[in-house]
């Protein structure tokens, strides 16, 4: 290295190039600001991630690991090997479906009311009495023109369709 002694001495003079006075303090201030904003930004995502991780760490507890893996594998096999659902086949077949002039947009409140009505009707039935007409009145009647629905859906008490 002796042959480069002079050049090394020259290069070492670069040690005298220094940042402006107060640079470190200013840098610290802006770094803290950035750190705080990153922490705030990440806190929501971090919280969600932590919950997901803790959930899976419980589910994937060694004690339950085999059971979890088996259930997951069976579910996956079931999905993979399952033939097309009959409902879909029916829907694709014009003969087994019927055209409605109206189709239902399901309102959850209406569904609950229908279930309650259905249960009340059953109570009347058990008592050997006829249910009043308002109890049996179907609630879900928001038809859409030209919709095809499977025939198998037509006889559900809580999802009565009006033509």
């Amino acid at each position: 290295m002796i042959e480069f002694d002079e050049i090394q001495k020259l290069i070492r003079l670069k040690r005298h190039e220094l940042p402006p006075e107060g640079f470190v303090d200013d840098f610290m201030t802006s770094f803290r600001e950035r750190q705080r904003s990153e922490m705030l930004h990440r806190s929501a995502r971090g919280l969600l991630w932590e919950r997901v991780r803790s959930y899976f760490s419980e589910v994937l507890n060694p004690k339950w690991a085999w059971a979890t893996v088996t259930v997951a594998a069976v579910a996956l096999l079931g999905i993979t090997l399952r033939p097309q659902t009959p409902g879909l086949q029916v829907a694709q077949n014009q003969q087994d479906s019927f055209e409605v002039t109206a189709f239902t947009a399901i309102d959850p409140d209406a569904v609950i009311a229908d279930v309650q009505n259905y249960l009340k009707a059953k109570e009347f039935e058990l008592d050997g009495a006829a249910a009043p007409p308002q109890v049996m009145r179907p609630r879900i009647v928001q038809p859409r023109q030209g919709e095809m629905i499977p025939a198998s859906l037509g006889n559900r008490p809580a999802f009565t369709i009006q033509h």
């Binding site: 002079e6 001495k9 003079l13 190039e17 220094l18 402006p20």
Partner: peptide
């Protein structure tokens, strides 16, 4: 975009030498 050179360079033996 270079930093300032501090005054210490004037007293640096290597700078004095070169």
């Amino acid at each position: 975009s270079l930093d300032d050179v501090d005054n210490g360079i004037q007293n640096d033996p290597d700078f004095i030498k070169v």
